[in-house]
């Protein structure tokens, strides 16, 4: 009742906003239609960065997680590159060259980025155009392994609030139980090769899961450096037998403890009636006969 006067002004303000909104959408549509590039002319460099290719690859900047792509168009045919960029996961299963590459690059597979045909064409054109591009991040400050471990297991928070590595990854040196199983085990994954490659990847991770997680909560250079220092010490090509033994012993001890607990809890369970009855009766008769 007090705000009796207001309703009359309310619809007027609302209709003004609505009109403004419609006008804006109209103008935006006009612009987008007028200035839209034809889809065949996708900007290769922008796409290279947008799709996160530079997380693992340079052009003329040396190898990171993946190979340096300078001159790749001369090394491979256009047809091979098109197939590779469209569906690398399928190529890895069928193509001998792709398989050889996988082994050469520490078994880190090229992810399927879901590129459209015109995007593939644009990328190949860009790679053949002689442009150069370096890794995603510059050099790292000096790192501290203790701090890196603390980041990994969650004793220390990441500055931008990212999740701790242990929730999805495991690595040697964080205790016998290890970490999560959702992501690859970083002990033997091959991801941790050089600080440049690590920093480049973590600066803008290109895989779907990592990209989604780290896009809004990036690591600081110091955090990257600490983590790399820790991981590079922990990472090996093959797990040590003693570590495997430790896990096996832990599993056996755990199972034994559970069985012992069950024996205590269900100690008075029914262990058969007929056989014990007969055995006891026969034993009693034997005792009497012996006397």
């Amino acid at each position: 009742m007090i705000e009796h006067g207001k309703p009359s002004s309310h619809p007027r303000f609302f209709s003004f906003l609505l009109a403004l909104g419609i006008a804006l959408i109209f103008v935006a549509t006009l612009f987008s239609v007028a200035f839209a590039k034809p889809s065949a002319q996708v900007d290769g460099e922008a796409l290279f960065i947008a799709k996160g290719c530079n997380a693992c690859h340079t052009i003329g900047g040396g190898k990171l997680v993946g190979p340096d792509l300078q001159g790749v168009t001369e090394l491979r045919t256009n047809e091979w590159l098109t197939k590779w960029l469209t569906a690398p996961d399928q190529m890895l299963q069928t193509d001998p060259d792709a398989k050889a590459l996988l082994v050469e690059y520490n078994n880190v597979p090229m992810p399927n980025l879901g590129l459209k045909p015109e995007e593939v064409a644009a990328l190949i054109a860009y790679l053949g155009g002689g442009a150069t591009i370096s890794g995603a991040t510059a050099e790292l400050p000096a790192g501290d392994a203790t701090s890196g471990k603390a980041y990994f297991v969650g004793d220390k928070r990441f500055e931008n609030g990212g999740p701790h590595c242990i929730s999805c990854h495991s690595v040697a040196g964080i205790g016998s139980l290890g970490g999560g199983n959702l992501g690859p085990d970083l002990t033997t994954s091959g991801f941790v090769q050089s600080d440049a490659a690590f920093a480049s990847f973590m600066g803008a991770p290109s895989t779907q899961t990592m990209g989604a997680i780290w896009a809004n909560t990036p690591l600081t250079p110091q955090e990257q450096s600490d983590l790399y220092t820790f991981l590079s010490r922990a990472a090996v090509t093959k797990r040590e037998p003693s570590a495997l033994l430790q896990i096996a012993l832990l599993a056996i001890a755990g199972a034994a403890a559970l069985i012992a607990l069950a024996q205590v809890y269900w100690g008075k369970r029914l262990r058969g009636v007929r056989k014990p009855m007969i055995e006891q009766t026969l034993a009693a008769r034997k005792r009497i006969n012996a006397k």
Partner: peptide
């Protein structure tokens, strides 16, 4: 509830 997955008073087929 604590015995739901293991009933300690079950006769066996031998009984």
């Amino acid at each position: 509830l604590s015995n739901i997955f293991f009933n300690p008073a079950l006769p066996t087929i031998d009984d």
